[in-house]
Write a protein that binds this DNA or RNA. Structure first.
Length: 805
RNA sequence: GCUGGUGUGGCGGAAUGGCAGACGCAUCAGACUCAAAAUCUGACGUGGGCAACCACGUGCGGGUUCAAGUCCCGCCACCAGCACCA
């Protein structure tokens, strides 16, 4: 009898062997086919690893291990996205330097990951807070600056009242801070911005060439928000100036009955003296600016506004005079900050017109059926036909749009125009624990980049990391560090004291893994040419419009500057679902449903945890934790272990198992590549159930099973391999092959149906001809063939269906 | 409101248009045991029947098809993301 399986001993033992043998250290051997698998590197928080982390890590570890066995040179690296607020806050609270906090957290995380037996190449470990790493983050920033894509701007920013830091639009969720949940208010500050909008078109178009799961592509496209329309100039009565608007519905121009400009629109100040109700407008503007984003959206249902008394616009297509209003539903930051209002065909304009009793003109009719614009705006572009619109009458909406734009261009009063929702990236953070922005501000020379030779510009040691209410970074108090000579003119100058956001270091980390110790460049050309693009990148959906978009932007910029060889960083992107608590709710301390992976590893073993997380359900859907499920997976591994006691010496497959073996190899091989880990494991469970039924397994069958299972449960399978004396290691063996011909049974059971309902089953030779199968089927159900047979259907190897009346 | 996704036993979940419920969990029974646990074996959608068998079953209502969980049309519920973007 075999000994009991002791995961504590076995797992430690093999983790040490893999380390000693440098089993997963990858060389830049450019002659072998490469496979670059990437998972999002974690933020090393004080809480340690969560059971959610192993799900994606195990999934790609399985693929990485399998691909190695298939002869690929596999890069599967890991590192630390270690700048960030929680570390800084912890440091402030406990008066420990963030550097030390980070180091401790990284040590803990690394031990935990190590205990799970991942095949990461730890010699390529990177850390975004390492000056040798962030030297290149700063280098990329300087390149962006020199290319005019980094600029400083006075702007209202999203200010988190709790973190005391400016946030990117993407970090504000429902008007509160994504991280701490405190309200976000507007605050005007001078901030570094990155012109991601310059790449808006490429970021959308190049999605066509990559293999991302559909929902990621869709949400990136929605976030970038490309819309096609036109800009039109409306004259202002008795004035030189024109009021330019943006619209996606140029076809409805004849239906414009008033205009609305944003409360901040410059036209108001320009004609201050002629506007009779200027004070009222100012009051409205003041009120609008005081509202937080949250309040603005909360109050969205109720439209507010003031009519400008003293200015009148003229509709350029029919010369009609129409009033100009201000309202906060028109945003200065999108389009031109002014719109033409067509209440009959736009929901927002309709609400506004209803509230202020403004006229409506219907210019689009339903193709068939009446449309009552007094009930609601008619916005259906698919079926609408133009009316009351002079030369557009009778045209469908899409043709009318084209014709109107042609007309406007011809008359010189408008042009075709594409707009995006995407805004430039707010890149400044008023914090200590981030990459210093390598810029010096000189009164004479303006913003001067730090010379490349001085990189990395290291974070100075400061006394206090406390953020300030004034909105300045803690670095601002470091006068020795701040006051420098201008590299340009030698005069007195000051360093930038804002730091970069956490997204900076993670925007290019996958490049560094290809050549992590390079001191001359962020990575060598050879390494980049060989390894890029990342073949398979898995990460959370929550990063779709943040990290994923930002890193694609940086990569495209680097591509345009000849630094990287591919347009896109990632060839394939998948996303895992969340792991919920036993009660089906999100795991959190306050809900008391948190499972600690260390406990599971201690009690059941890493292999069990890995197997369970892969078996739990469809990879992309969220799944609830179940300790009973964990036990079931442990039981499965023990059943594999105990197969040792039913071995026969045969190194091949037994005759009755041959088909099943080939089927299983095929299923497992395919499922591992297609995120169907649960069914791959189910297939292996079914296989060993067969061995148990026979109480017998050949050495050949066992060897194949061990190899197939190895990517999921690497420790127990290495141990079994050693006990069996199969030679070498599982990780060095080759992946089993299957013979397609042998995956098909020679005799198969098929169903016999009458009118689609199964009445019997029977065994047939797989290549028996139709007539004999049907004849046999009729015999099988002879007593039930009571009516007239209309049709006889035979789907080879599947089913016979007799259609009867 | 818009976009995407999901809906199948007591539970987690399987099913290239071809025998719905693989695999696992829980439950029940048997074997082993003085006993329990563990382990092994078996049963396990619902209703009816001693039975062989019959009927009904994949959120709801229609449709296509010899055949629908799967395809089409119309709904409902839940989850996620976006949301005054003209």
């Amino acid at each position: 009898m075999s000994e009991m399986y002791n995961h504590k001993v076995v797992e430690k033992e093999w983790q040490k062997v893999w380390d000693d043998e440098k089993a997963f250290v990858v060389e830049n051997d450019f002659t072998k086919p490469k496979f670059y698998a990437l998972v999002e590197f974690p933020y090393p928080s004080g809480q340690g690893l969560h059971v959610g982390h192993p799900r994606p890590y195990t999934a790609l570890d399985i693929v990485a291990r399998k691909r190695r066995m298939q002869g690929y040179n596999v890069l599967y690296p890991m590192g630390w996205d270690a700048f960030g607020l929680p570390t800084e806050n912890y440091a402030i609270k406990n008066k420990i330097h963030p550097k030390i906090v980070t180091k401790n957290n990284v040590t803990r995380f690394k031990e935990q990951l190590h205990s799970l037996g991942y095949s990461f190449d730890w010699e390529r470990e990177i850390n975004t807070t390492d000056p040798e790493y962030y030297k290149w983050t700063q280098w990329i920033f300087l390149k962006l600056f020199k290319a005019g894509l980094a600029y400083k701007k006075e702007m209202p920013i999203n200010w988190c009242t709790e973190c005391k830091v400016g946030l990117a639009n993407e970090e504000v969720v429902n008007g509160v801070c994504e991280r701490c949940g405190a309200p976000v208010v507007r605050k005007v500050k001078s901030e570094w911005m990155l012109k991601i909008t310059e790449y808006a078109d490429k970021l959308i178009n190049d999605l066509d060439g990559v293999d991302y799961i559909e929902k990621v592509k869709v949400s990136q496209k929605n976030w970038i928000g490309r819309s096609e329309g036109g800009e039109v100039d409306f004259s202002i009565k008795d004035k030189e100036d024109k009021l330019r608007i943006y619209t996606t519905r140029p076809d409805t121009l004849f239906g414009a009955t008033y205009m609305v400009v944003s409360p901040e629109h410059p036209i108001i100040d320009k004609y201050k003296d002629e506007i009779k109700n200027y004070d009222a407008l100012m009051e409205y503007r003041e009120m609008a600016s005081r509202k937080s984003d949250f309040e603005r959206t909360e109050l969205a249902k109720d439209k507010t506004g003031v009519c400008i008394d003293g200015l009148t616009a003229i509709n350029p297509v029919n010369g009609k005079e129409i009033p100009i209003w201000i309202s906060d539903y028109v945003l200065m930051s999108y389009g031109t900050g002014a719109i033409m209002a067509v209440p009959a065909h736009d929901d927002r304009d309709w609400e506004f017109a209803k509230k202020f009793n403004l006229p409506m003109i219907q210019v689009v009719a339903g193709k068939d059926g009446e449309v009552d614009i007094n009930e609601a705006a008619f916005t259906d572009v698919a079926t609408g036909v133009l009316i009351n619109s002079d030369f557009l009458n009778g045209l469908e909406v899409k043709d009318a749009k084209v014709k109107m734009v042609e007309y406007l261009e011809e008359k010189g009063i408008g042009t075709k125009k594409v707009n995006f929702k995407l805004r430039d990236w707010v890149f400044s953070r008023q914090r200590y624990w981030g990459e210093p922005i390598p810029i010096i501000e000189c009164e004479k020379c303006g913003y001067v980049p730090v010379d490349e030779s001085e990189l990395p510009l290291e974070l100075p040691e400061v006394e206090s990391y406390m953020p300030t209410d004034s909105g300045e970074s803690p670095l601002a108090a470091m006068t020795d560090w701040v006051n420098v000579k201008c590299p340009c003119c030698g005069g007195p100058a000051k360093r930038e004291t804002d730091t970069m956001p956490q997204w900076a270091g993670s925007s290019w980390y996958f490049l560094r893994y290809t050549d992590p110790k390079n001191t001359e460049a962020l990575a060598s050309k050879e390494a980049l040419n060989y390894w890029l693009p990342v073949d398979w990148y898995n990460g959370g959906m929550e990063h779709t419009t943040l990290h994923l978009l930002y890193s694609r932007f940086w990569h495209k910029f680097l591509y345009d500057n000849g630094v990287v060889p591919t347009k896109e960083p990632y060839q394939k992107r998948t996303s895992h679902g969340m792991i919920l608590g036993e009660n089906g709710e999100k795991m959190s301390k306050s809900r008391g449903n948190v499972v600690n992976p260390d406990d599971i590893v201690r009690e059941y073993g890493a292999d069990t945890l890995r197997t369970y997380e892969m078996f739990i359900g469809a990879f992309d859907l969220s799944a609830s934790w179940s300790e009973d499920g964990v036990k079931g997976c442990r039981r499965f591994l023990e059943r594999v272990w105990k197969l040792q006691d039913m071995l026969t010496d045969d190194m091949g497959y037994s005759k009755d198992m041959e088909t099943k073996m080939h089927q299983t190899i095929k299923k497992v091989s395919n499922d591992f590549e297609n995120l169907k880990y649960n069914t791959a494991i189910a297939a292996m469970m079914a296989l060993i159930n067969d061995f148990y039924k026979k109480n017998s397994v050949t050495k050949g069958e066992f060897k194949t099973l061990i190899t197939l299972l190895n990517p999921v449960a690497p420790h127990i399978t290495e141990e079994l391999w050693k006990i069996m004396d199969f030679g070498g290691r599982v990780y060095q063996t080759t992946w089993p092959e299957y013979d397609e011909a042998k995956t098909v049974e020679s005799t198969v059971e098929i169903a016999v149906q009458i009118n689609g309902k199964t009445k019997a089953t029977m065994m047939i030779e797989k290549d028996a001809d139709k007539d004999s199968v049907i004849a046999k089927a009729k015999e099988e159900i002879a007593d039930k063939l009571t009516g007239n047979i209309i049709k006889e259907i035979y789907v080879p190897g599947r089913i016979v269906n007799i259609v009867m009346k």
